[in-house]
């Protein structure tokens, strides 16, 4: 009897996981907008590679890597993610060094290598919320950016313009003093 119920649980889990449509929809909900660690593989490949060992979180000196439980679907269980508004990636690249499976690829901690390989997402400015676009000089996102003038540039009144080189670390989103935040990372996974 116990065995049967155990298999039932497995079966229900399988059914939930195979029908991945609700999972995709859940990933697009604003409250579940997440980033994968820097230089993670493309989402589907990432899930296939990640063995949920938790070493990336253990290596992260900033403690920004958290782990899904069941909220993002069964396939994402115990995989690492970053919520940039809470704590953003400081691009130390230690998680890629420690990842045994290549789900997070190793990248040397140099600006060029990071710009070339890391694409966690892309920052977007909501001009209706941004203080600088409302006539109040701010520029906090620009000051927070680890790649200033390369990933983000400011114009008149410190109005931010995100450039192509933005790697999506999320430090600008975390630093934004507006509530709701005027700059946000659009994750590069689906």
């Amino acid at each position: 009897m116990k065995r049967r119920s155990f298999f039932k649980v497995l079966g229900a889990g399988a059914a939930a996981a195979v029908s991945s449509e609700p999972t995709r929809a859940a990933a697009n909900r604003p409250s579940l907008r997440y980033l994968r660690p820097p230089c993670a593989l493309e989402e589907e490949e990432f899930l296939a590679h990640c063995i949920n060992c938790g070493q990336c979180g253990e290596a992260c000196p900033n403690r920004c890597i958290k782990y899904f439980s069941l909220e993002n679907g069964l396939a994402s269980i115990d995989t690492p993610y970053i919520t940039p508004r809470e704590k953003a990636c400081i691009l130390c690249m230690k998680c890629g060094d420690v990842c045994p499976t290549g789900a997070i690829q190793p990248v040397p901690r140099e600006a060029e290598a990071i710009m070339e390989n890391v694409k966690m997402g892309h920052a977007e400015v909501d001009e209706s919320l941004c203080l600088s676009y409302q006539g109040k000089t701010c520029g906090v996102c620009y000051r927070a950016c680890p790649l200033p003038d390369v990933a983000i540039r400011v114009g008149r009144l410190e109005q931010p313009h995100v450039l192509e080189n933005c790697v999506g670390c999320g430090l600008c989103e975390r630093s934004c003093i507006q509530m709701p935040h005027a700059i946000r990372i659009v994750p590069s996974h689906g």
Partner: peptide, 12 residues
């Protein structure tokens, strides 16, 4: 299950 979901579910 791991093959069907494309995620290492045995870990769970």
């Amino acid at each position: 299950l791991s093959a069907a979901t494309g995620s290492v579910l045995v870990a769970a």
